[in-house]
Amino acid sequence: MAKYGFDLHIHSCLSPCAENSSLPADMAGMFALSGYKIAALTDHNSCGNCRPFLKACDHYSMLGIPGMELNTAEEVHVICLFKTIEDAERFSDYVYSTLPPVKNRKDLFGDQLYADELGNITGEEEKLLINASSIGIYQVKELAEQYQGLAYPAHIDRSSNSLLSNLGLWDPAMGFELAELSYSCPEDLLKKRKDLKGLKAIRATDAHRFGQIPSAPGQFMELESLDIPSVFEWLRTYAPSI
């Protein structure tokens, strides 16, 4: 068994709110430089930059996981992780079809850039990716599983786009096996809530730019082998409780 530093919520220049300099390959490189061994790219409603991210992770001897930060119909952000790039991209195509036909206003939201593993900009996404999909929160777990994915709500302690702020409480019927917390969430804030008792939770950087990447990993997972099925098993079974 070995311990691996991880972060499973990272954005690239495809997210309008991220810097244009947050190229997927460079985000991978910067996390590797800080000592991370497992990293997931989770742009808003798209896996469109996951391919170059995974190639860069390989290059830096880090396990890369293709993912997405899905925005549900209730505007709750949910992290969806996948075992293969093919599954992720199929899921991404489906999510894209559920987004309203609203164009991105670059002057208001920022650019949505596709890039390759060498850092070349290869295209631009015209549809506004931070919009809400028509996928309801109660559908997400099962939908992700249809693509061999694992889904759990992002930054539940935040005051916007979070499960607790938008829906009020953790309903086990949603089926989520764990939750993500911000690093800024105080240890005891959620301990008082009955609805979260015993809930498994991990923290995430939600890094949109280099400056938000910590100098060292804040959490680790212990695995027999460094692969995505083992990461999923750890998250479902061994992640710490709130």
Binding site: E74, E75, P100, V102, L108, F109, A132, S160
Partner: peptide, 27 residues
């Protein structure tokens, strides 16, 4: 308060009442 609804349904010149206070509200 759901920005996607406001984007799709509010009309030009409307006064918008909301409890949301993040920067996407301005956008």
């Amino acid at each position: 308060d759901l920005l996607s609804w406001v984007m799709g349904r509010a009309e030009e010149g409307n006064a918008w009442l909301t409890i949301m206070s993040n920067q996407n509200v301005a956008a």
